[in-house]
Design a protein around this nucleic acid. Sequence first.
DNA 1: CGCTTCACCGGACATGTGTCCAGACGCTAG
DNA 2: CTAGCGTCTGGACACATGTCCGGTGAAGCG
Lengths: 193, 193
Amino acid sequence: MTEPTRRRLSERQADTVRRLTDAAVEEVRATGFDGFTVRNVARRAGVAPATAYTYFTSRNHLVTEVFWRRLRALPPVTASAGQPRERVVAVLREIALLVSDEPELAAACTSALLGTDPDVRELRLRIGRTIHRRLLAALKPDADSGARPTPEEARVLNALEFAYAGALLHAGMGYSSYAEMADRLAEVAELLF
Amino acid sequence: MTEPTRRRLSERQADTVRRLTDAAVEEVRATGFDGFTVRNVARRAGVAPATAYTYFTSRNHLVTEVFWRRLRALPPVTASAGQPRERVVAVLREIALLVSDEPELAAACTSALLGTDPDVRELRLRIGRTIHRRLLAALKPDADSGARPTPEEARVLNALEFAYAGALLHAGMGYSSYAEMADRLAEVAELLF
DNA sequence: CGCTTCACCGGACATGTGTCCAGACGCTAG
DNA sequence: CTAGCGTCTGGACACATGTCCGGTGAAGCG
């Protein structure tokens, strides 16, 4: 039995989880990535460490959850605006700036995304699928969600996904700032159209 | 005084370091990334943990050093072959397959590269510069090493670096295998020329 | 040959991670 | 009012990280 049997959180539990994720952001903002401890976050959230561990299996899981929540909170891709290129650039910029408000948080996310425990893996797959779908929606907005991209579109999509992940990695390593990264991503998108 | 005063290793020291980096590769191959412990690596190398820590400040530093050594061991970029595109693809494939022989090692490298301690930062910068230079050399082989790329070349170079880092990240996260990743990188390069 | 120096040893230490469990707390229902 | 239930607590645990330091053996020098 590897999957949990209860799949929904009570109101109170959901609140605890929210307090934890909020506290995680504050903590990394206040003390940086190094001072970022599960126990510190729990204390900031006014919660016992053991409680934090009942909702998150690891530090990486907690950070990944923050990223995932921000990604999921984005509004649907707007199908209206003119050229595909512009829409793609907009989507890229949007997801590039997801965690850019605090560089330490972004570095934490990049690193946490690489975690090995099952919960991180699960979230990672969802995140990958979500980004893929958003870029695809920007590329061919009028298609059904079930429609397959042409081979050419698949290649462009692949290139865009690589570019996004690469930009995230570069920023996470401190090669460049996040604002710069968003601009360079736009340049890459322009090269591909 | 932040920098060490002795800048060269004795024969014996160099040997100890080599035993450690070799043992690190074997260890990650044998027990995976999770069982990868500085103390385990030291034991495998026949060395005391304290000794390992005199040469590597952290686990991340050790892994990063492995990556750096492999990168530095590559032969110079061959200026001869025909099209720039082919040379670039060759360079990309070369550095993509650097650590591909064992996926666990690659995941370890990707994660370690993000470390925050000064030694990792230093190596990271060197790695970034090296990759940049190799791609540039493939792009315009006849130029002096001091020559600056044109704005257009700079954009392509930037896109290539993003693509490489993104591919590494994707592979590190287990989205795809390394062989697949190398092929997709080639596709990206073709889109850019 | 004896002495110094250099690299390595081994073990203690403080801190963080993730797990576990008995028990305390407050809300709700009988 | 009180019993039960779901949730959180506090602290112990095993293990990893990275630091520190007194001690040891062997190579190299006078």
